[in-house]
Design a protein around this nucleic acid. Sequence first.
DNA 1: CTTTAAGCGAGACGGTACGTCTAGTCTTGTT
DNA 2: AACAAGACTAGACGTACCGTCTCGCTTAAAG
Lengths: 210, 210, 210, 210
Amino acid sequence: MQSRTPAGGRTPAGRTGRPRSAAADAAILAATREALVELGWSGLTLGDVALRAGVAKTTVYRRWQGKSELVTDALATLFDELVLPDRGSLRADIEGVVLQFARLLEQPATKTALMAVVAEATHDEALRGRIREKIVGRQKRLVVEGRRRAQQRGEIPDDSTDPGPQIDLIFDVIAGAVVHRTLVSCEPVDTDWAARFTTVLLDGLAVAGG
Amino acid sequence: MQSRTPAGGRTPAGRTGRPRSAAADAAILAATREALVELGWSGLTLGDVALRAGVAKTTVYRRWQGKSELVTDALATLFDELVLPDRGSLRADIEGVVLQFARLLEQPATKTALMAVVAEATHDEALRGRIREKIVGRQKRLVVEGRRRAQQRGEIPDDSTDPGPQIDLIFDVIAGAVVHRTLVSCEPVDTDWAARFTTVLLDGLAVAGG
Amino acid sequence: MQSRTPAGGRTPAGRTGRPRSAAADAAILAATREALVELGWSGLTLGDVALRAGVAKTTVYRRWQGKSELVTDALATLFDELVLPDRGSLRADIEGVVLQFARLLEQPATKTALMAVVAEATHDEALRGRIREKIVGRQKRLVVEGRRRAQQRGEIPDDSTDPGPQIDLIFDVIAGAVVHRTLVSCEPVDTDWAARFTTVLLDGLAVAGG
Amino acid sequence: MQSRTPAGGRTPAGRTGRPRSAAADAAILAATREALVELGWSGLTLGDVALRAGVAKTTVYRRWQGKSELVTDALATLFDELVLPDRGSLRADIEGVVLQFARLLEQPATKTALMAVVAEATHDEALRGRIREKIVGRQKRLVVEGRRRAQQRGEIPDDSTDPGPQIDLIFDVIAGAVVHRTLVSCEPVDTDWAARFTTVLLDGLAVAGG
DNA sequence: CTTTAAGCGAGACGGTACGTCTAGTCTTGTT
DNA sequence: AACAAGACTAGACGTACCGTCTCGCTTAAAG
C-alpha cells in the first residue's frame, strides 16, 4: 500500500522504481477545478477528471482516496489567492476581507465545491480534519492579522486574556455571514452590503438599528 | 405531463383517474428523513427511500424530480419545528433563536442535508428557488417577529425606512454564524457562545472587544 | 371475476349492467395488427395498443389475459384470409396454397407475430391450445379439402385407412417448408420455388433428383 | 467504442489494457443456456444471466448488444452438437438427421430460443445475418454431406448443374417439417413419423399416397 | 322511469427489468 | 515502481411496462 498523497517531495526518500510525475498532480488539480465549473460537484466524476488531465484513473486513485479529498485539495488551491492588504483602519480592513472573500465565493468552482465538501464532512471525520487544515486555517489567519493591526492602531483594546475564542467567534460571524448571503440567500455581496455589515459588526444593533 | 409535486389538494380540481395517495407523500418524506440520518446525503438513494416508505420508485419520481427536490422538502418539514417564544428582551430572544437553530443543526438529518442541497443549488436555479421558498423564507419570519417585539419594547428605534435590507442582513449574520460555527468550524454552539455572539451583535466589536 | 374473452354474443345471456362494446374489440385487434407492423412483437406493449385503439388499458385486460392471447387473436384474423380455389389439378392446388401461404407470411404483422406466439407457446400449454384452435386448425382444413379434390379427380388413391396421420404429415411438410424458407432462411417463395417444391412433394427426391 | 463480440482472439492484436476474460464468455453462454431451460425466452433477463454466470451486468453488455444476440450465440453452441454419421443409405441418413434434429428441438432451451430469435429477426436485419451465419449455415452442411454420400452410392444422379437451389429446398423441407411438427403442431417426431416423412420425401405423394 | 350492475377512460399504484453510468480495483504491457 | 489502457465487480440511476387498483362517469337492461 502506498501513501495516497500528492507527489510533493516524496521521491527523495530512498525509494526505488519510477518516481511519481509532479506534472500529473498539477494536471489533475487543474482538471478538477475545470470540471467543477462545468459540471458541479455531483456531476464531477474521477473518470472524467482523469480524462481531462490526460491521465489514467489509477494515477488519480494512487494519490487521492476519493472525490471529497481531491476536491478539497483543488479548493485549497483557490483559497490560496486570499490576501489582506493593510487599508489603514479596522473598518476598511473588515470591508476589504468581506469583499475579497465574496469575490472568491462568486467563482463557480469555489461555491459549488465548498458547500459540497462541507456536506460530505458532516459524516467523515478525516475530511473534517483535511478541511480545517487546508481551508479554514488559512482564512482564520486573516482575522488574527487584522486584529493585531487594529490593536496596534489602538482601535480595540489589547486584551491580555486568551483571544482564541473571540477570534473564532469573529471568524464565524464574518465568514458565515458572507457564505450565507452568497450561497443560501443567493444575494450579491457588494460594497453597500459590506459597509452595512461592518457597521453592525463594529457598532452593534443597539446603535446601528435593526 | 403531470405536475411532479406532492399530492396536497390537487385532486379536487375536476381531474379524472385515481387520485394520488396523500399517505404516500407523508411516508416518503418520513423515510427520507430517516434515511438522511442513517446514510447521510451521499448515501441516500431514492430506491432506498421508496423501499423504506413501502412505496414503488415510480411513486417517488412521480412527485419529485430528484434527490435534491425531495431532500429539500424533507428538510423543510424539519425547519417547520422552529418557533420563537417571547423571552422578554431582544438579547434573550436572539440567544433563544441561536440556540434553537443550533439544536436543529445538530440533528444529523439537518446538518448533512442543508449543506448538500445548498451545494446542488449553486448550479440549479430552480432548486435555489425551492430552497428560498420552503426554507429560507420560513426562517426569515423569525427575524421579522423578533424585530417587531424589540421595537414594541423600545429596545431599537421604529425606523420608518424600508426594513427589508436590514432584516436580510441580520438574518444572514445570525444564520450564517451558527451554520458556520456548527458545520464548517465544527464547534458546538453552547449557551456561552450564544451569549458572546449576542453581545457582539448587539454592542459591536468596538465595545465588546475583538 | 369476468370471462376475459372478446365481446361476441355474451351479453344475451341474462346479464345485467352495461354490455361490452363490440367496437372496442375491433379497435383493439386493429390496433394490435398495426402495432405489430410498426414495432414487432417485443416492441408491442398493451398500453400502446390501448392508446392506439382509443381505449383504456383496463378495457384490453378485461378481454384478454395478456400479450400472447391478444396477438394470437389478432393473428387469427389475418389467417382468415386464406382460401383455396380449385385450380383443376393436385399440382396446381399445392402450388396455389404454397403461394398464398407465402403471401400471408410476407405481411410484417404475420411473420413477426406467428413465430413469437409459437415461441411463447413452448412454455404455455393454454396458449398452445389457443393457437391450435384458432390458427393451425384453419390451415389444416385446406389440406383436407385439397386431398378430397385430388381423390375425386383420381390423382391419388382413395385410401380407406385413417387419413389423419398422413394429413398431419403433409400439412407439416407444406407449412413447415414455407415458414422455414420465408422466416428462417429468409429467402422469397416465388413461383419457381413453389414449382420445384411441388415436384419434390409429388414425385420425391429419387425422381426429382437432390 | 469497443467491439461488442465475445473475447476470442482479439487480444493478440497489439491492444493495450486488460484483456477480456475468456472464462467470462464461457460462463455467460452456459448461464444463458441454463436460464433458457428454467425461464424460457420471455422470462430470461440479462441481469439474471449475469448473476448465474457470477459476472457483472456490464461484462455481458460489453460483449453482446442484447438478449437476441446473446441467445443466438448460446443457441449456436447447442446446434454445434449435431453430427450426421453415415448410416449406409440415403433413406437411413435422412431418418437419422430428422431424428437427431428432433431430439435437439425437444430440449427446452432449443425450442424456446429458436422461435423467439427468429421472431425477433423478422424486424432486425443484423440479427437475421447472425442467425444465418451461426445456425442455418452450420446445419446446411449436413444436407450437402448427405447428398454427396448418396451420389457416391449412386442413389441419386450426380447432377452437374448448380446444386445450391436444390440443397436449399431440401434443407427447408426437412428442417421446416421437423420444426413445424415439433413446435407448431406440437406433436412428437418418433421413428414412425420419421419413416413416413422420409418415404414422402424420397418417393413423393403420387406413390406414397396422400 | 328509476334502479343497478357492469363497462368505460383516466391515471396512480407496487413491482421488475431495462440499459447506462460511476466507483474503485485489477491486470495487461510499456516506460 | 509508476504509467496508460481498459476489463472487472458492484450497485444506483431514471425510465418503461406490467397487471392491478381506484376514481367518477356512462350506459343499457331489469324492475
